[in-house]
């Protein structure tokens, strides 16, 4: 088999993932695109390992490591996205602009710390108030 086929396929998959990371708004869809990019790298590793007939099989071992790290990354990433959603009520990466330096006054619709949990909202609002009075 020509090495060009897997190499070109890996390049195209990587660029599709790149487009997804840049163009998607939902944080979970961004994570999916990151998975596509990691898989393109895996395909490259496997193809070059088979081509070079490496006695250590470094490419395949690294592919297994990449798959494991991707699994860990998706777990941590989803936990963070769920935490953001619980605190902000959105998983839209374009609206998470707390740290952005806009140069103007913060617009009202960007940060609305709403939750679906009434008790948590009350607790969140009570905590800073208590801290100020104390």
């Amino acid at each position: 088999m020509h090495l060009g086929y897997p190499a070109v396929l890996a390049v195209l998959l990587f660029c599709v993932g790149l487009y997804g990371v840049l163009a998607r708004r939902n944080a979970i869809l961004v994570l999916m695109s990151v998975e596509l990019m990691l898989n393109a790298v895996n395909l490259n590793l496997v193809a070059f390992d088979v081509w070079l007939r490496d006695t250590l099989h470094a490419g395949q071992a690294l592919t297994l490591f990449t798959i494991t790290i991707a699994a860990a990354e998706i777990g941590i990433g989803l936990a963070i996205v769920l935490l953001v959603y619980r605190n902000r009520g959105t998983s839209d990466v374009d609206k998470l602009t707390d740290l952005a330096d806009t140069g103007t006054e913060p617009d009202s619709d960007s940060i609305a710390p709403t939750t679906d949990n009434a008790a948590e909202t009350a607790a969140d609002q009570a905590l800073p108030a208590g801290g100020q009075t104390a």
Binding site: C15, V16, L18, Y19, L22, A23, R24, R25, N26, L29, V93, D94
Partner: peptide, 13 residues
């Protein structure tokens, strides 16, 4: 579902 900068993303990709 798509951000406003999708044309920039398309160009980069």
């Amino acid at each position: 579902a798509d951000s406003g900068n999708r044309w920039a993303a398309l160009t980069v990709a």
